[in-house]
Amino acid sequence: MKQGRSLRAYAIGYLVFLYAPILLLPVFAFNDSKIIAFPLSGFTTNWFSEMWSDAQVWIALKNSLTIAASASILATTFGIFAARASQRYRFPGKGAAMGLIMLPLVLPEMIVAMSLLVVLLAVGVPLSIFTVILGHVLICTPFAVAILTSAFQSLDRSLEEAAYDLGETPVSTFRLIILPLVMPGIISSLLICFTISLDEFIIAYFLAGADTVLSAYIYSQFRFPARVPAMLALGTILVLVSICLLTVAEYFRRRGIAKTGGKDTGGFL
């Protein structure tokens, strides 16, 4: 297995390349220098306390959390409808309808943001965190649909029919049988959408108006070299939070597949 060994070495090298920039993040967040360069000049937690005492960070964080929570709940709800419809029913125009819903996945984000902006300005909707939520729901929904489709896919239709035969209504069947079985998929979708929204920049930057959102705030601070180390400290925390959310999401995704007896094909998509 010589071929296997050299491929493994390549794969490990690739992981190093993939993670190298992220690993540099804590290195410079704890480095006692305003300049992001080698050699390192000692350990400090000043950047974390500077970031912690920055009132703007907290306002932006509150806005970002509001956006991420709203967008993930709305997108997952829309995702449940669309995934259920595409898995359970045949109807005319299904391909076109699902195509439109999934379109943001294959459209440059800038185009989504700009076309939305043009319409919002034309209609006269003031830009705020509300308009960011509108945009985030749009780009999160395809991911929710993808995750939930695989959850509904592994659902055994005869369970549902058995419930009808035993006198349950469609609504109570959905609540008692289907919902618990796809619950892990729903939680996974909520967490993924939350992470996407928290991390998203383009829509948050162009549609927030005067409101500050975390990613846009970080971007604006990058212009000031003196502010960069504190932003790297903030970034370190954000990356840690994202990784935790994703790990929990992956756990629920796998549990969902195990619960309905499906085969793990790996990955969120």
Partner: peptide, 16 residues
């Protein structure tokens, strides 16, 4: 099916 997909579809039509 159409009733089920309509909320999501309507959103995509209006905002996309």
């Amino acid at each position: 099916g159409l009733a089920m997909v309509s909320p999501t579809l309507l959103y995509a039509v209006l905002l996309l």
